[in-house]
Design a protein around this nucleic acid. Structure first.
Lengths: 130, 130, 130, 130
DNA sequence: GTGGTCTAGACCACC
DNA sequence: GTGGTCTAGACCACG
């Protein structure tokens, strides 16, 4: 798993890294119990302040995507959702409407979008039924 | 078309309004040449700083979504995309992958997502073929 | 609402403040939409680094207890719970068992504890039925 | 008595074990003069660093919950509280208020909480009157 | 070695 | 004015 930061982006570094991590997990490229680079290592690799990396890891832990164990390192967590169905649906619809809005402005047709969704969706690691 | 601001949101007011405008256009609730309220009127209605409204209009004009006709007011622009197919596709995919990433974390299945996309897409005003 | 920090405590400053805030809300001493002191003000008052105060506010916002609006200040949020019933019950039981464990070690009787719970509970601002 | 560590918890291992021990005593599952596994045995069983186990035992001994008898092993101590009534009451109230604060935020009602307290309290081994 | 906390001080975005 | 981000560097707790 290789992270990268774009210093010229308006998006804060910690958000860039957080998003990359979230996507890597959603695509199944990072699996539960897998160890991530240490705060100090990643900060050296990316030439970013250790505090910034620590912030990324802290936020992701709060979101339940990873566990950090002082003295051992940082590990990918097992997925779990504690939100109510209602809240989850609301958030999904909001995100979807935002996506569809941009799709319209980018001048795509409904058919093109639906088709693309099916295509890209196959690249993600959807939860198996429980 | 009624705008509204959510003071409890983490999203800056000017972005809330900009997004609402973009979505209203994409849903066909705002049509080309339709006149928008003046900066002063809207600022009074929403109880928002006039500078904030002015910023919204300025950004939307820069994005080509509306035109200011001095002395007449602010009007919705006709849709036009100057971007190449390649660039448009890249942006769409990036937005879609972001959406799918969140959908996975919200613990939805691919089927649920695809189905919801079709459902919500019918509420938008897609460009007719040209 | 007056906060205070005990520099000699092993509990980190940001946790001391966060707990004081959570308790003030639970007791109804801080009400929705009430404005809190600014980061800079509180940092001067408590002689604590502004970043530490900012961290307190950031975490409380993530927990949904307050809203921050750049340019305006920080405000108490309206209560809402997005967690599933199951998760909420699990957390409550865990906290309760911890409390009861300590009560036993402090050599109280069950009757004393039950009685004290009823007594203190009356000082909190329980949600009205919805 | 079987201990267990949750590697995904934010709580340090030594505190997890210490709390489990305190709770086991409070529930009457560990009785005075009962022998505990040796540091080396427990460290192997739990796959935890021996230093960590040693720390748990050291702290518990300092708290008066167990005694080390050199050459014989580690044993559960007889309960005794040397604190004054006033201090004990203060600590209990502080713990209780913390619990009630969280209960409010978890959106429970006072009745639900009082009822749950009575229910769970019956599972603990309260001191008989002396 | 690991991550967690705190300080100091800079610069930016928002209103 | 407000809060948000990032850096630099110190010190502590954990295993």
């Amino acid at each position: 798993m290789e992270f990268q930061v774009d210093a010229s982006s308006r998006m804060p570094i910690y958000r860039q890294l957080r998003n990359q991590f979230r996507q890597a997990v959603a695509r199944g490229k990072l699996l539960p119990d897998q160890r991530l680079p240490s705060v100090r290592d990643l900060s050296r690799t990316l030439v970013v302040n250790p505090n910034t990396i620590a912030r990324v890891y802290t936020e992701l832990e709060r979101e339940g995507l990873l566990n950090t164990r002082p003295g051992l390192g940082v590990f990918v967590a097992s997925p779990k959702t504690e939100l109510t169905k209602k809240v989850r649906k609301e958030r999904l619809v909001e995100l979807l409407d935002h996506f569809l809005t941009e799709a319209v402005h980018l001048d795509f047709s409904a058919d093109e979008v639906v088709s693309l969704v099916g295509e890209r969706a196959s690249q993600f690691a959807w939860q198996s039924p429980r």
